[in-house]
Amino acid sequence: MRDRIEDIALAGPGILLLALAFVLPLVEMLRLSIVGADGGVTAEHFVRFLSDPYYLGVVWRTIYLSLLITIICAAVGFPLAYVMARVSPQMRLWLIVLIILPLMTSVVVRTFGWMVVLGRGGLIPFSLWKLGFVGRNFTLMHTEAAIVIGMVQVLLPFTALSILGVVMKIDRRLEEAARTMGASFLATLRSVVLPLAMPGILAGSLLAFTLSVSSFVTPSLLGGVRLPVVASSIYDAATKTLEWNFAAAQSVILLIGVLLALTPYIRLSGRRHG
């Protein structure tokens, strides 16, 4: 058995780092968000954000794009994770490498790649035009579709790998048993694998959702200035208009939104364990 002092000594560096790099900035952000122009305490930044239809539009876009991205990631990630869990270990290793490889390049580089593919004369619009599906050479850049495509590509590995971890633990004999009981392959997938993989799907979706509501680089590069999301609005307030207090207030709202999204999941997984 370890001593309490040894425990503290072991955890010390990590706790210190968290305190300096996470808790302190967070407290500073909370303080800034309620400081007015005169230095007194005020709620004016929150009122300004929540009463302006422009900012409410930004929030709404952020939420529904994130939901769409999350749903696509889960819908694509679950079958992918299932196949990865059921192939030979060697094949699985290759698939994992294939999925992780894009994560090795910077998000900025990958996003510029999408700009080339999606822009006017890029691979997708050009091919669609030449094949006669659309009447003219067009661009997919600065559309919500571009944001969704780019974000799904960034977040799919996280979702697929969190689901993979859970599917790997599902006893294969349960599927075999279901087959001997008259369930077809698809019925087995639906009534046995899907319910048992649900904790992984929830965890992966949550990861995808929280990462996409707070993501900045991909939406601002692929969506452009006409399609701002909350993160780019914070960036503008902090760097262009230099309204730090307003930027802090928006950050607090984003933080509360993410925490609200986390709550039902924590409840759900708590019930599963208890």
């Binding site: 001997t180 008259g182 392959f185 019925a187």
Partner: peptide, 8 residues
């Protein structure tokens, strides 16, 4: 496939 064999 197993589901079409009427076995348990």
């Amino acid at each position: 496939p197993p589901e079409s064999r009427d076995i348990a």
